[in-house]
Amino acid sequence: MAKQANKDDGSWGKLIRDIVVILLLVLGIHSCVAKPFYIPSDSMMPVLRNGDRLIVSKYPYGWSYSSVSFHLAPKIEGRLFGKLPERGDIVVLEHPVTRIDYIKRVIGLPGDTIELRNGELSINGKAVKREVQPMLSIPADANTPGPDSSLFRFITRGADGRTVLELPIVRETLPGGATFDTIDMGPGYTTDDYGPITVPANHVFLMGDNRDGSADSRVSTDRKGLGGPVPFDAIAGRAEIISFSTDGTAQWYNPLSWFQALRSGRAGTDLRPERDAKAQ
């Protein structure tokens, strides 16, 4: 009996060791290589929708406390193998105060002077190129518009009778050539006028693509914004690709609904911005 008990003790010990090794491996991959990310709002529309699942790479900018998944690392200044993002990159970051995960686009780098007037962005005293696009029609569903969204007033009926969002789109081209679409809902929003402000060393200025519906560097922390330029150390990684997207109708107890809720055409979408060589 004693030998059997010792054998059982060894089996349990091996099982626990294996579990610990697996957990450490998962944490290492999450923290150093890549992790999944879920989009919970409309702040990055039209590029990202509530319900998108992304792959976020951890290594492009080096590693800091924010790279460690599940917010396990203490906030320590410094970055290993640090490399600044490019303007136009979509990044995941820890909120400088709450440490909640945010996702925004890099607009300004250290030394840049950022200013907005009537919603029009200028960088270093030069207006960013803006091109008004045709209205963008996106199917409305249980996830879009998202909770507390600013986009409900754009809901209408499409030609086929389905409920859609008809969104006003402005394409911007940043210094360096990054080109992407934004939503501009017109004048009258508190974030339409900002600055000028110069981005300090080791900081970046971040904005959401839904320009009138994003709590970003233009918005104070007491309104859930980022409260200005964000320390580079708070950047956790770069958004790379949409893995899949759901419309909010899936039910956990009904596996068939998991497949029915998938949005077609979203998986595989590259999230790196197009770059206009003429604007380099």
Rank of each mutant, 00 (worst) to 15 (best):
M44N: 04
P231H: 11
K224R: 15
Q280M: 06
V26T: 14
G10P: 03
V26C: 14
L72D: 08
K126N: 05
V199L: 13
G208I: 05
S257W: 08
R79T: 10
S220T: 10
I22C: 07
D192W: 13
G195W: 05
E166P: 00
Q251D: 08
I155F: 04
S217T: 00
V230Y: 05
P187N: 13
P168K: 05
G268A: 01
K83E: 12
V97G: 01
I235A: 01
W258M: 00
E166N: 13
F244N: 06
R272C: 00
S137W: 10
R53W: 12
Y102T: 02
G82N: 14
T190Y: 13
G161P: 07
A142L: 07
K104C: 01
G111P: 06
A201L: 14
G111F: 10
N6W: 12
A142C: 02
F37E: 04
Q133I: 01
K7R: 14
P85V: 08
P168V: 02
P74S: 12
G268W: 12
V20A: 15
T191R: 15
N50H: 11
G161R: 15
L165I: 08
N124I: 02
V128F: 09
V91E: 09
E240K: 10
P60H: 11
Y61K: 05
A73M: 14
G228S: 10
V219Q: 13
D276T: 02
F259C: 06
F152E: 15
I107H: 02
F154Y: 15
P139Y: 07
G62R: 14
G78E: 13
S257P: 02
V164C: 05
L23Y: 07
F37C: 02
L167Q: 08
P229N: 05
K35V: 00
T156W: 14
L54F: 08
G88R: 03
R53L: 01
I235D: 02
G125L: 04
D247Q: 01
P60F: 10
I29H: 12
R117L: 10
R105V: 00
S214Y: 12
V21M: 03
A201E: 15
E274M: 03
Q4K: 11
R157P: 00
S31H: 13
I39T: 06
T221F: 04
T246M: 07
L206V: 10
S264Y: 04
V91W: 14
P175R: 11
L136G: 02
G188M: 06
P187M: 12
H203G: 08
A201F: 12
T182V: 06
E94I: 00
L262K: 10
I197S: 13
N202T: 05
V204R: 08
P110E: 06
P255L: 06
Y253L: 12
K126V: 09
K3A: 11
V68W: 14
L27F: 15
T190M: 13
